[in-house]
Design a protein around this nucleic acid. Sequence first.
RNA 1: GGUCCGGUAGCUCAGCUGGAUAGAGCAGCUGCCUUCUAAGCAGCAGGCCAUUGGUUCGAAUCCAAUCCGGAUCACCA
Length: 596
Amino acid sequence: MNAELILSEHIAAIVNTLYGLQTEPQSVVLQKTKKEFEGDLTLVVFPYVKASKAGPEQTAQQIGEALKARCADVHAFNVVKGFLNISFTDAFWLQTLKNMAATKHFGTKAAGSSGKTIMLEYSSPNTNKPLHLGHIRNNLLGYSVSQLLKTQGHHVIKANLVNDRGIHICKSMLAWKKFGNGETPKSSGMKGDHLVGKYYVEFDKAYKREIQELIAAGQSKEEAEKNAPMMKETQDMLRQWEAGDTATIDLWKTMNGWVYEGFTQTYNMLGVDFDKMYYESNTYLLGKELVQDGLAKGVFYKKEDGSVRIDLSKEGLDEKVVLRSDGTSVYITQDLGTAIERFKEFPELNQLIYTVGNEQDYHFKVLFKILEKLGYAWAKECYHLSYGMVELPEGKMKSREGTVVDADDLIHVMIQTARETTEQLGKTEGLAEHELQHLYITVGLGALKYFILKVDPKKKMLFDPKESIDFNGHTGPFIQYTHARICSILRKAESLFSTFEVNTSLTLHARERELIRSLYEFPAVLSEAANGYNPGLAANYIYELTKLFNQFYHDCPVLKEENEAIRKLRLSLSETTANVIKTGMNTLGIDVPERM
RNA sequence: GGUCCGGUAGCUCAGCUGGAUAGAGCAGCUGCCUUCUAAGCAGCAGGCCAUUGGUUCGAAUCCAAUCCGGAUCACCA
């Protein structure tokens, strides 16, 4: 029942007999007919004019006539220049709708049906400061891609590798010890991650003061940065941590605990979750033994200074250190170790995806190349889901300059705006208080998530805090609103009519046909979005579909339609549209309300 | 400097495996609520697809060069 498949088989056969070609059906290129022309699918006939020894119009005419003669689903065709526009019969589209309406979870493949297991790592925050807008993009993207992969029948393990150790955490710890006076989230009323973030800023202030003093005392900037007591103490603290000093470890656990409580709240608001938590404090030593392995295999080599390196200059990359001269490992060593560990832990793993910003493109190139050189066959199944930075009108967000857009603040503003808008419109009488609260969250976050996910992940995106995120037009709430409208019809219809059946001998209204055609594309869109790791494709499709529904809604009465068969068709069409909107938005992690 | 990514309406973005007159939304202007939710629908206006050359029946799309912006090239993570 696939429109493209039907046509391409017939067309291949036609051009082969007519023009003596040997065209495969797969190589017949069809495209959606442009809106301003009559038709469903369009064949560009230029590739065949040489063989047909006729002009483009004539060739198109010939193919069109042959097609209509041999394919019962083809209703009509027209030729514009070299373009053959083909229309299917209404019966074909009605049958298509009937099938879609009868398919449970239309557009998605059954869970686990692909037999593929994919680990997708995302979020991976540092525990020294709260989440900001950049993390939001990461979280939403990672979660959405995991949802998209699931629609293709893959088993997905969502993983979060928390960077819970290192010099930056020690900075917050040191500042808290020095200036904190025992402050806790409880005593301050602050969310734990924000409290720890506050001391990270405190550290920076104190550190900068010390540097200024040392410079004033005659040291160079570099010397001052190295010699500042705050920095020395932090490094001491890191050493104590690594040595397992009880007091340091206790403080570390306490403060990380605060951060986790805060993160959990933010994750819950964003509606993202994880199947597997990893902590760098457990994994940072991984990968060291691998260095021996790499040396033995001749992949790595040891320099005179004792450091171990790999030369990737032949691959167009540089020389990369994998073990410092003091024998400690660097970031990439850990990453090598954890990757290998994960394939050991999950032998069924087919793919490993890292959701990390494009500033680390180079890092992942090197990482995957080293894994390949070490002889791991799965190295080619590692993928860097790289995304662009979120920028402000002034440029990049800089935490030190206080220009970051805080995740919790932004979420709060979105929910607040959703409340104000909803109250202004006043369409929610009868909803209980907890339902209203839920609605504000759904709409506020719907706006935020859609705003971020509709943009191609690869591209950097701009966020202007002065212009709040819209609720009209190409937005999440527009789509949610349409869904609520459909639900309203369906609620009323339920009490009136029992079944929404499709009579395939009806004549379609142009709006109906457009809508069915759009619904029909849904499975292909989901698979394309999943294969390209691009939620933006799904987001833009849902918007197009929603716009079409609103036109249909405007032009075609549903409940008020007097012809029963047409009314039932429209109800079925409405219901299928609502399902597709819901399923589609679900891949974006966006909930759709039944009333708003 | 090497490598990589990007440059489409005033603004934010689609379109990029070559196809018809380059699309949306916002902002601006104009209509449409006694009729299934106006968070909607319809319309007007807005463009040298950074520039130049090439490939061909055809280029926003592919190639090259140039200009502009960003990232990266740590014994940081």
